[in-house]
Amino acid sequence: MFNPTVARLTYRGLLGRRRALVLFALPALLILISVAVRVLVGADDSIASSVLGGFALATMVPLVGVIAGTGAIGPEIDDGSIIYLLAKPVRRPTIIVTKLLVAIAVSVVFSAVPTLIAGFILNGNSQGIAVAFTAAAAVASVTYAAIFLLLGVVTRQAVVFGLVYALIWESLIGSLVPGARTLSVQQWALALAQKIAGEGLVTSDVGLPLAVVLLVGVTLAATAFAGQRMRSLTLAGEE
């Protein structure tokens, strides 16, 4: 279920495009903010928690997920170069799983790792906050990568839909409509952070068992569906 050549092409394509700059800019911004906060207010557990929860997990992780997930396949489908992968005796689900693994790896490197660094800068992992949010960022990265990869397969406007989901659904609707939070990758990931961090510093609207089921279920379902869609991917002529 893994093809090293597909992986190589995918990751070079991901990091070789201009939108890859966002991959570097967002973590850099997070670390910059963390340094500024630490210098200005010193180490504070609840501030560390709000920076990591409010910026890292709520904004940076989904945005990196959108870029890595849709970027792992969308551009190739758009410009037609995917034909060079499809016209090969390689099973289509293998192509999807490989691309998903690359998208996950890129997301984790560009979101979970910076979250850990930022956490240590903010309060030196006091109350386990840095590790808690890093774990949340990592599991969220996996699910986001799967969702946005599927979006990249099914629609040409994957980036737009991804941004709408990441910014409007996760941030706006989630803060206005409490029920919507149950259907939020961010809340599922927070359930894990809540378990790891010290009492009362992180709260999630979803219980951990349900969160795990949803994270795993959505990831698997999105991947399976993307693999299915790949099998009958149609490349229409330009006539």
Binding site: V6, R8, G13, G80, S81, Y84, K88
Partner: peptide, 27 residues
């Protein structure tokens, strides 16, 4: 089957050699 598509896009960031080697590996 070998296919030469009409569309221009290939993996433009690769050299021709890297591109053709990748195709050989995929086969």
């Amino acid at each position: 089957i070998g296919i030469v598509p009409e569309r221009e896009a290939m993996y433009d960031f690769l050299t021709a050699r890297e591109f053709v080697v990748a195709n050989a590996e995929l086969h």
